[in-house]
Simulated assay, not measured.
Amino acid sequence: MQHLETMPRGLPKAVKKCLEKSRDSALLAVETYNKPAIKFKSGGYIVLMVISWTALFHAIFFRQKKKPFYKKNNRFEKKDGDYCYWELSTCVSKYFVADTNNPIRKNLEFFIPLRNMVEHKSIPEIDSDIFAECQAMLLNYDKIMLKEFGNKYCLRESLSFALQLYPSSKSLNNAIIANPSTKPIVDFIKAYRSGITTDIMNSGEYSFKAFLIQVANHQTKNTLPIQFVAYDKLDDTQKTNVNRVAALVKNKFVQVPVTNKDLLKPSVVVKKVQTALGNPKINKNGKEKDKFNMDTHTRCWKKYQVRPENGNENPELTKPEYCVYDQPNDTYLYTEDWSDYLIEEMAKEDEYNSLYE
């Protein structure tokens, strides 16, 4: 690796120091993750990669002649004689600005609260389940490094493939059974994943997924034993073949859990109830609309007191059998029991009418 004194000249000293810290932290993160004897695998990796990403953003801001320090009363804050640097969450918001749905940003925003959760806990039970996000976090790091500082600072030439056995196929629910103390972390992971769009979830920049198939030895000695092929670079025929093989691998080898299968967005609840009621219509102000709509749903959660009003100081005080507060996205998700309850109650005309009295 290129250390401070051997890095090419031209970058300011502050930028070089941040880059060295960032690269060292990233390499330590990978080394920690790939050591088979270490049980604090994901925890150590996440903590070190958060440091690495933070230092990378600081290097970018310093090069842009921006000072990544917090201000108070229009003056840079100091603590113990040193400036208070922006944390990763602030760096992310400053770098991506209005691009709130960027998959790289969503990946980092997944790890920021998770880092605080795992810092003082050993949670090997969730390692296999969050591997895809961990891998994407590393690939994204090199992608941003390449974009901002060029190929000579990337890690790809310093790393090789880790030797692997068949990975564990344990689900997050298995993690809770094995270690009940992981439940808050598992709940966070499920809530975060359910709160992002399908496009983000399927993006390789948010979560890198791959399947390895053992093949016959290559015809030439110089062929790489493992090669990455970007899915979005394949033509339609190749994608169809890949999807067919992936489906076979899933069905034959892996029990794939459906995360948050009991948690629904409000719009999904509305659609389920409206459909179950027979898709009835009402006439309002001369316009036809669904009888059970988003306004009806809002009236329901207020009447049955399943969650607090918006702006409440304690948004987590819900009826958990019906509703869960998703803290990272500041929104509410609902259970299948809630939709079933509404279907039963809204079938009663008097109960429906009471919402509008």
Rank of each mutant, 00 (worst) to 15 (best):
Q227S: 12
L212D: 01
K183Y: 05
M201G: 02
R244A: 15
T237Y: 03
T259Q: 06
A216K: 14
F188R: 09
V256Q: 07
Q255L: 08
Q238A: 12
T198A: 06
R244I: 11
V249P: 04
K233Y: 11
V249W: 01
R244G: 01
N241G: 01
D235E: 14
D235R: 05
A247V: 04
R244F: 09
K239S: 03
Q238V: 01
L212R: 07
T198N: 13
V229Q: 14
K190H: 02
R244C: 07
Q238I: 00
D262H: 11
I213G: 04
Q227M: 13
K233R: 14
N241V: 07
D187P: 04
K233A: 14
D262P: 01
D236T: 09
V245L: 15
Y206Q: 06
V256M: 13
Q219E: 13
V229C: 09
V242D: 04
I189T: 07
P257Q: 00
V245S: 03
Q214K: 14
P184F: 06
D235C: 13
P257R: 02
N217G: 14
K261A: 01
T237V: 15
H218M: 03
T197C: 04
K239I: 11
K209R: 14
I196C: 07
F211S: 03
Y192M: 10
S203K: 01
L234N: 05
T198M: 06
F208E: 08
V242G: 01
F208H: 12
P257L: 02
Q255E: 05
Q227V: 15
V229G: 02
T240W: 08
L248Y: 02
V215E: 15
N241P: 00
A216P: 00
A216Y: 05
K239P: 10
K209H: 05
V254D: 06
L263S: 00
K239A: 01
A216F: 01
I200Y: 00
F188Y: 15
K233F: 12
V229H: 13
Q219I: 11
Y206C: 10
A230C: 11
N241A: 08
F253C: 12
V245Q: 10
R193A: 00
K252L: 11
S194Q: 14
V256P: 00
T259E: 13
K209W: 00
D232E: 15
R193L: 12
T198L: 02
V245M: 14
F188E: 12
G204Q: 08
A191K: 14
V254W: 15
